[in-house]
Design a protein around this nucleic acid. Structure first.
Lengths: 147, 147
DNA sequence: AGCAATAGTGAGAATCAGTATCATTTGCGA
DNA sequence: TCGCAAATGATACTGATTCTCACTATTGCT
C-alpha cells in the first residue's frame, strides 16, 4: 500500500469513527509506517520528539478503536503498536527474547491455509468462535546472538 | 504426566536451580495443575486464599526462572501463568477477546510439523535463531457468545 | 539435640506503565 | 468571523507488579 493510499484509508477509518485526522495522528501513522515491526511508546517518542507522551497514548487508543492500529503485548513490560493488518496485510512476529525487539515476517499462503483449517477445527470443538490468529516466533535476533 | 511424576519433575527442576520445594510452591503448582489454562494471580489467590499475594508473585518468578512455569501475557492487564510445556506438552491458547479467559488446545502433529518447517525457513532468512513458537487463536468463548 | 547460617515468608511501601483530569488551543460549521 | 465541540499536553492519579525488611522455617554441622 502506497503512502497516499494508506493515508486515504486511515482518513476513511477515522471518519467512520467520527474522529479527526489531526497532525499528531498523522505523525503517529508515519512513525509506525517507518518501523519494520511494532513500536513501543518510548520508541515512538524517541523517533518524533515533538509528540508528547500523553498525546501518543491517547491517540494510539483512539486509533486502535478506529481499527487503524493494533496493540501488541509480548512479554516485556511495554505495549507495542503497529498498523492494523487490514492496512499492511497478514503477517507474524519474530520476537527476540534477549532484547525484546519485534520484527515482521510472513508465511506463504499454503501454510497459512493449512493452519487456518486446523485452527477452525480446534475452535469448533472448543465451542469457540474464531476471529483471527496470532503466531509469534520466539528466539534470538542477529545482534543479540553476536553479543 | 501423573501428579507424582509432575511433582518429581518440579522437585528436580527446583533442585537444579538451588531452590527449595516449599509448601507455598507446592500449592502454587497444584493450583496451576487444576486450571484448564493459564491463570492470573487473582485467580490463584482466589483458588487458594491461604497464599498471600506477595508470595505468589515472588514464587511464580522463581518458578519461571527454574523453568517450571511460563508467564503468558495476552492483551488485558493481567499476566497469566501455566506449567511449562516441558511438563504439560506443547499446546496453544484460545483467547476470548471479550472476557480475557484463556483455554488450552492442541493441533495435530502433522500441522505442527508443517508449521515448524515454515517457521524455520522464515527465521533463517531473517538471521534469527528460532527457539519456540507461540500460536494463539483469538475469538469469543461459548459463554461470551451467549451473552 | 543444639546452633548457627541460610532461605523463605508476608505485610506493607515503592515503582512505573498506562489512564484520567482539565485548562488551553485548534479547527470545523454556520 | 464567531461559537462550539474536539484535541492537546502538562500533570496528577491508578493499579499491577516489585522491593524491603523484620520474622520464621529449614538445612547442615558438631
Amino acid at each position: 500500500m502506497s503512502l497516499n493510499d494508506l493515508d486515504d484509508e486511515v482518513a476513511a477509518l477515522l471518519d467512520d469513527a467520527d474522529q479527526r485526522y489531526t497532525s499528531s495522528r498523522r505523525r503517529l501513522i508515519s512513525a509506525l509506517q517507518a518501523g519494520d515491526g511494532p513500536l513501543t511508546i518510548t520508541q515512538i517518542v524517541a523517533t518524533d520528539a515533538s509528540l508528547p507522551q500523553s498525546t501518543v497514548y491517547r491517540n494510539l487508543t483512539i486509533l486502535e478503536e478506529a481499527g487503524v492500529v493494533t496493540r501488541i503485548v509480548t512479554s516485556d513490560d511495554f505495549a507495542r503498536y503497529e498498523l492494523a493488518e487490514k492496512l499492511t496485510g497478514h503477517h507474524h512476529h519474530l520476537i527476540c527474547t534477549a532484547c525484546g525487539d519485534v520484527v515482521d515476517f510472513s508465511l506463504d499462503a499454503a501454510v497459512e491455509a493449512t493452519l487456518d483449517k486446523a485452527l477452525d477445527g480446534a475452535a469448533v470443538s472448543a465451542g469457540f468462535t474464531a476471529d483471527s490468529h496470532r503466531l509469534d516466533l520466539l528466539g534470538t535476533c542477529r545482534d543479540c546472538a553476536k553479543a
